[in-house]
């Protein structure tokens, strides 16, 4: 899932400077699951903006809304009436949702309340780790279920660098060295010989490096 985090209040205030009527829109998808932009978070941020306005001595009107998903046209269109008279739309969706709302309401001033962080999953309550780098050419079958592109800080394909120590990464010693994990899986499956295989450089043209991606499904067009 997409994991995101709320921006600092200070940054949000700066984006809303001079805007009086604000609509905060939450999303029932990923950001609800990672407790960043769901209905609860919309309520809290709305209240913070009201309290903040009082403190700053400015007039501010905050309206709240949450849609099932901000990346689906039919759900976003439901906001049409609410959007009409607003000076700013503060979207609490991931970067995709923010842009979707902006595309559907091109005259609206849409700003992001969240920083979209990664495609990841919770490893325990309150901790989400990046798992997928969206490289466009999945090679997980070659690495026993652990992605070296997403989970190795240097996206190495031929084993750990010299900075791997005690199974941890040199960049952040609280994070596992992905290659240590792959190594352990190889031992478990009795496939240590796979390590000697020389893997050639990745074709990054499938990743974001090749330009913004477009996926087509002809059968439904």
């Amino acid at each position: 899932m997409i994991v995101a985090e709320r921006k600092s209040y200070e940054k949000i205030e700066r984006m809303l400077k001079g805007k009086r009527k604000i609509l905060i829109v939450g999303c029932g998808g990923c950001v609800t699951v990672c407790l960043a932009g769901g209905q609860k978070e919309v309520e809290i941020l709305a209240e913070m903006l009201r309290l903040g306005a009082k403190k700053l001595g400015i007039a501010r009107e905050v309206t709240e809304a949450t849609v099932e998903r901000q990346c689906e046209r039919e759900f976003v269109l439901q906001l049409a009436d609410k959007v009409k008279d607003k000076d700013a739309i503060l979207s609490m969706a991931c970067g995709v949702g923010v842009q979707f709302v902006s595309d559907i309401f091109p005259d609206a001033y849409v700003v992001p309340a969240l920083d979209t962080k990664c495609a990841g999953a919770p490893i325990e309550r309150g901790i989400w780790n990046e798992k997928c780098a969206l490289c466009g050419d999945c090679i997980l079958d070659e690495f026993y279920g652990i992605c070296p592109i997403a989970r190795c800080a240097k996206n190495l394909l031929n084993g750990p660098c010299g900075g791997s120590q005690n199974g941890k990464c040199e960049v952040d010693r609280t994070k596992d060295c992905a290659w240590q994990l792959i190594y352990e899986r190889m031992i478990k499956f009795g496939r240590l010989d796979d390590l000697i295989k020389l893997r050639m450089p990745k074709d990054w043209s499938y990743a974001r490096d090749g330009g913004p991606r477009r996926v087509l499904k002809e059968s439904v067009r």
Binding site: S8, Y9, E10, I44, M48, L51, G52, K55
Partner: peptide
């Protein structure tokens, strides 16, 4: 934390 973020009294 919110009180601090907003410098609320």
């Amino acid at each position: 934390k919110i009180i601090e973020e907003l410098s609320l009294d």
